[in-house]
Design a protein around this nucleic acid. Structure first.
Length: 172
DNA sequence: TCTCCGATTCACT
DNA sequence: GTGAATCGGAGAA
């Protein structure tokens, strides 16, 4: 079944582990489908979280994170890679969950590449969308936590938060 | 305007 | 293990 707004309208620390094991469904222009199971996510929690882009406040770039739960936040990293997040919590609270890895796939930039996701998806809703959405098929993952990746600039307190969630069975 | 640097990946030593 | 690719956001000038 498709994930609805209630699923995303919670704290990102609840949504992030719950997204592990869910399926991303992508419908392409030629009507073919791609389905991938999420194996790894990371939570970015609002303006206080120094690793979160929104820690700088609301700007042209981060305004997407202030939108309603279930909004897709795509941004360019290092000038060449697209990373995809799902916004959580109600409008006005800048939280997001980064989709980091899927089955048969390593790395958030490879993920968006194989799903043909680019910046045009930024600001779209993933709840009511004919091109991409999320489903649950009842699979229950076994989850372990770890620190987030690539955020050394955020300082000791924030870079050590165990806000990365990994499916033990589907990751190596 | 100008400068610095990133929620990464890949090629090369 | 090291460094290049590559561009737009954010902050300073």
């Amino acid at each position: 079944m498709k994930l609805n707004e209630d699923f995303f309208n919670r704290d990102c620390l609840e949504v992030a582990p719950d997204l592990v094991g869910k399926l991303i469904v992508r419908k392409l222009d030629d009507n073919s489908y791609i389905k991938m199971r999420i194996t790894q996510t990371e939570a970015y929690r609002g303006e206080d979280d120094k690793a979160c882009h929104a820690s700088k406040g609301k700007t042209n770039r981060t305004q997407t994170m202030y939108m309603a739960a279930g909004t897709i936040y795509v941004y360019i990293c290092y000038g060449i890679h697209y990373l995809m997040n799902i916004v959580t919590e109600k409008e006005g609270i800048p939280q997001a969950v980064l989709i980091r890895c899927c089955e048969d796939n390593e790395g958030p930039a490879k993920l968006t590449k194989s799903l043909f996701v680019d910046k045009s998806f930024n600001g779209e809703s993933i709840i009511e969308n004919s091109k991409i959405w999320l489903e649950s098929d009842g699979y229950l993952p076994l989850i372990k936590t770890a620190t987030r990746v690539g955020i050394d600039y955020a300082g000791e307190e924030w870079k050590n938060k165990p806000w990365r969630y990994i499916d033990i069975n589907l990751s190596k």
